[in-house]
């Protein structure tokens, strides 16, 4: 059976370093299988997150040969095994140990985004009516598995560390899902412009490229949100209009 070498980050924070592990490779294996094999054979305390092993939960995010990817969806047959496969933790978040980072910042940011606020039910039995065509675009955003690869690749977070001022692509997708939800009556434009710092995004589309769910983050979520912010705060006619009429009255979209 062919063998391959995996160069994996071991240790914590500043003192972390690479360590090489050789293991057997069989047909169809993904990077996560190799990590599990290394765990069982030679490094039982090797820390990594994983759950579903089918690209549905977004736990096993890592950087493989420098690219942010899910370990469970990266097949070894797509990598050059004549060289060591480099597996590192995400870089946009504080390191915990080995392949694990502290992603709790994401949960805090999400919590500050204004929650879903539906209009009054359409039918006397308390239900709503929505057409599939109106739901489609929001369903794209709701495919998000919260793997945070988009956050990891975004230079505003990764290189400029604007975690205090910028919510990141994941949370723009989340905000877009709420803003474009056919039933929602909340207005998040002010927050997007303010504490979520959407203006920092300069549309390099790196987030879209790494999304394992193929959500067109930049084009379908971030740009329309930027347009809402512009309409709301920078368009002189709308500003004038807003003085006389609330934009989204409760009870009607």
């Amino acid at each position: 059976m062919p063998r391959a070498t995996f160069r994996i980050t071991r240790g914590r924070g500043e003192s972390a370093s690479f360590k090489d592990y050789a293991t057997d490779v069989s047909e169809g294996m993904v990077v996560l299988d190799a990590v599990h094999q290394v765990q069982a054979e030679s490094a039982p305390d090797l820390a990594c997150r994983w759950n579903c092993k089918a690209g549905k939960c977004g736990s096993c995010s890592a950087e493989i040969n420098g690219k942010p990817r899910l370990m469970c969806m990266t097949r070894l047959s797509d990598l050059d095994l004549s060289m060591p496969v480099i597996i590192e933790p995400l870089r946009a978040f504080p390191h915990v140990k080995d392949l694990v980072t502290d992603v709790s910042w994401n949960f805090r940011v999400k919590k500050r985004i204004k929650p879903f606020k539906p209009r009054r039910p359409d039918a006397p039995d308390g239900t709503w009516r929505m057409q599939q065509s109106d739901v489609d675009r929001v369903q794209e955003f709701r495919k998000c598995i919260e793997c945070f690869l988009c956050q990891d690749v975004c230079h505003v977070l990764r290189d400029h560390h604007k975690h205090e001022e910028f919510a990141g692509p994941r949370h723009f997708v989340y905000a877009a899902a709420l803003e474009m939800h056919p039933l929602d009556t909340e207005n998040r434009a002010g927050d997007l412009r303010g504490k979520d710092g959407i203006g920092y995004c300069n549309i390099t589309k790196c987030c879209t490229k790494v999304c394992p769910e193929h959500i067109t983050i930049t084009d379908n979520a971030i740009i329309p949100l930027k347009e809402r912010v512009v309409d709301e705060f920078y368009d002189p006619l709308t500003r004038l209009f807003r003085i006389f009429k609330p934009r989204k009255p409760d009870g009607g979209a």
Binding site: P44, D45, A47, C48, V96, K97, D98, V100
Partner: peptide
């Protein structure tokens, strides 16, 4: 188990 108590899947 090997290692310490910090994020140790073997444990």
């Amino acid at each position: 188990v090997e290692g310490n108590r910090e994020y140790n899947p073997g444990w």
